[in-house]
């Protein structure tokens, strides 16, 4: 998501002051996990195209209930690849920007993508209003999938991506502002954590000299999973309003810690 991240600044300062010992050079051992990560992303963008096709069909056929039911699950494959959204900033805007990014908010003619459709389905209560945005979304995710397949992923963007996304979750997602019309934020959270954890899990075997870091980070991901598990319902999650203040505060603290800790990955792997 294209949005503002208050913690980015705090994390950067920590990196300067904390001065973790940096690995000297990147190792060729990074090649395999980087390749595996791209395959993970390509699988997700292929899934996104398939899921969006069904979502768009429901909108076009005027089936409001099915369209609403497909909104959150369709988004999850996009949310999983958000750690590297910097690589397609134009499509991140047209697919996933929020109303606040525009001068005229929901009324802005440039407001498109998932959240514009979400607005049509939940607030305007109107599939017909969503049709042009659904068609645009289909074209955009198809473009995204093709681009991902053709792209050589820059290693530094991938390795930094886990922290980048956690910072964004902390700054502009945990508050429930992303899926404000549908309340499906918990679906996004889970996908965001899964996407960031994928990068961490692929790189973890290369971190051989810091057991404390591994233990702490594993623990934080596990604790996040445990909290989210309490809100599972059917194939997905309860409405964001069900999240208690305590659990939100807990998630927030874990996300901030993860953002800070994962920001050390580039240094640990010689990519800072």
């Amino acid at each position: 998501m294209f949005s503002l991240k208050p913690t980015a600044f705090a994390v950067s300062i920590t990196m300067l002051a904390g001065a973790p010992v940096l690995a000297a050079d990147p190792s060729l051992d990074l090649v395999a996990p980087l390749a595996d990560y791209k395959i993970y992303v390509a699988e997700n963008t292929a899934q996104l195209v398939a899921d969006t096709d069904a979502f768009v069909e429901a909108i076009k056929s005027g089936d409001l209930e099915t369209a609403k039911a497909l909104y959150a699950p369709t988004r999850t494959s996009y949310e999983k690849v958000e750690p590297i959204a910097e690589l397609f900033s134009d499509l991140d805007v047209t697919i996933d920007a929020r109303a606040d990014d525009y001068e005229h908010a929901e009324a802005d003619p440039n407001f498109t993508g998932f959240h514009r459709i979400e607005y049509a389905l939940w607030v305007e209560d109107d599939t017909a209003a969503a049709v042009p945005f659904a068609e645009r979304l289909m074209a955009d995710v198809t473009d995204l999938d093709a681009r991902i397949n053709a792209l050589t992923f820059p290693p530094d963007v991938v390795v930094a991506g886990a922290a980048t996304l956690m910072e964004e979750v902390a700054a502009t997602k945990i508050s429930g502002e992303e899926d404000r019309y549908s309340g499906t934020d918990l679906w996004d959270f889970e996908a965001n954590f899964a996407g960031a954890k994928k990068i961490y899990a692929l790189l973890r075997p290369l971190i051989t000299d810091d057991a404390a870091f591994i233990e702490k980070t594993d623990g934080n991901f596990d604790e996040v999973d445990e909290v989210l598990a309490k809100y599972r319902e059917g194939e997905g999650f309860k409405h964001y309003e069900a999240l208690t203040d305590d659990d939100r505060a807990f998630l927030s603290s874990r996300v901030n810690t993860l953002a800070e800790d994962l920001s050390m990955l580039p240094g640990k792997l010689g990519l800072s």
Binding site: P26, L28, A32, L34, K38, A42, T152, P155
Partner: peptide, 19 residues
């Protein structure tokens, strides 16, 4: 030209072999 500059190309070739 450093080892680092090869990481992207080497990874992408692995992806190509796999696909």
């Amino acid at each position: 030209v450093t080892l680092r500059s090869f990481l992207g190309p080497l990874s992408e070739y692995r992806v190509y072999l796999s696909m």
